[in-house]
Design a binder for these strands. Structure first.
Length: 277
DNA sequence: AGTCAAACCTGGGCGC
DNA sequence: TGCGCCCAGGTTTGAC
């Protein structure tokens, strides 16, 4: 499930390959993946433009084009962006292919077909539904302890649900939410406003630390995630709780428990993650 | 404001 | 072997 570290890893793996390339053709195999413009317009506005830069906002990959447009890619659960030869046989789940002048192409492959594409003028981010009201980047200077404390103050919702809320902070998904809460020693079902100052500080630190480590280890490959070169990540080997039901907690050895919080599969160490401060 | 469920999809894992 | 069922996940939408 591509969250911030996975999208950042894809971005880094693709920069050297696609920046400067000119798009000579676009194939659309799943029309409904294009969200905000008709297919013909999408293709027409892309063909002939060059890729200037790759950016990221939360879980969105942003392809900046010489035309002044930006292609915004959201991979949702199973989306992949692979830099491969243009003449490769099309995969069953290929949603779109962006072909370059050098015979290579960016293949957007997505088994579950939830991934989506928006084409907008640079800066018109609110045209991308999932970017409307998006919160600060957790690794930026904007994301301070003070910001987090204020965002959580007076909120009765469960802390895990709020970490997954992209308008509070951008880029955290189920894996990194569970890992952050484990490191901070906070139970995911705690009401957000019940966290004391020390806990908010600890959570802020844990979020940044886990995301930075996730990037350093090139993301978490549980099933479908691979970077732009098709390489798996390595952070799955360092997960403390996510996906480790009944396995020993790396800190205390207590078996990790799987439950459901905020409607999501949730892993905790019942000894390390306390319900009350 | 919050929580919950459904919808979007497909393949994997399970029980029988 | 194979069927039917449930589940995973990010986001949007709608209901209570």
């Amino acid at each position: 499930m591509p969250e911030l570290p996975e999208v950042e890893t894809i971005r880094r793996s693709l920069i050297g390959k696609v920046v400067g390339r000119t798009i000579t053709a676009v194939e659309v195999h799943l029309a409904k993946a294009i969200k905000n413009v008709p297919e013909e317009e999408f293709v027409h506005r892309l063909v002939g433009t060059a890729i200037r830069e790759l950016g990221r906002r939360g879980k969105h990959l942003i392809v900046y084009l010489s035309s002044g447009d930006a292609l915004v890619v959201h991979l949702r659960m199973t989306g992949q962006l692979l830099y491969l030869p243009a003449d490769l046989r099309r995969h069953k789940h290929t949603s779109a292919v962006f072909i370059f002048e050098n015979g290579q192409a960016l293949h957007f492959v997505d088994q579950r077909k939830f991934g989506c594409l928006h084409l907008v003028a640079v800066g018109q981010w609110s045209e991308v539904s999932s970017m409307r009201g998006i919160g600060p980047e957790p690794l930026s200077d904007e994301f301070t302890v003070k910001y987090l404390a204020q965002a959580l103050a007076g909120r009765s919702g469960r802390i895990k649900a709020l970490l997954l809320d992209q308008t509070l902070v951008a880029g955290i998904g189920n894996i990194y939410a569970d890992e952050s809460l484990f490191r901070a020693g906070i139970h995911p079902a705690r009401p957000a406003s019940s966290l004391n100052r020390t806990e908010v500080e600890g959570l802020h630190h844990a979020i940044r630390e886990v995301l930075a480590e996730g990037i350093a280890h090139r993301g978490t490959t549980v099933r479908d995630y691979y970077d732009g070169e098709g390489k798996a990540g390595e952070f799955q080997e360092r997960l403390a709780v996510y996906g480790r039901g009944n396995l020993p907690c790396p800190r205390c050895g207590t078996p990790v428990v799987r439950s459901r919080v905020a409607g999501r599969g949730t892993y905790i160490c019942p000894n390390c993650q306390v319900v009350r401060p």
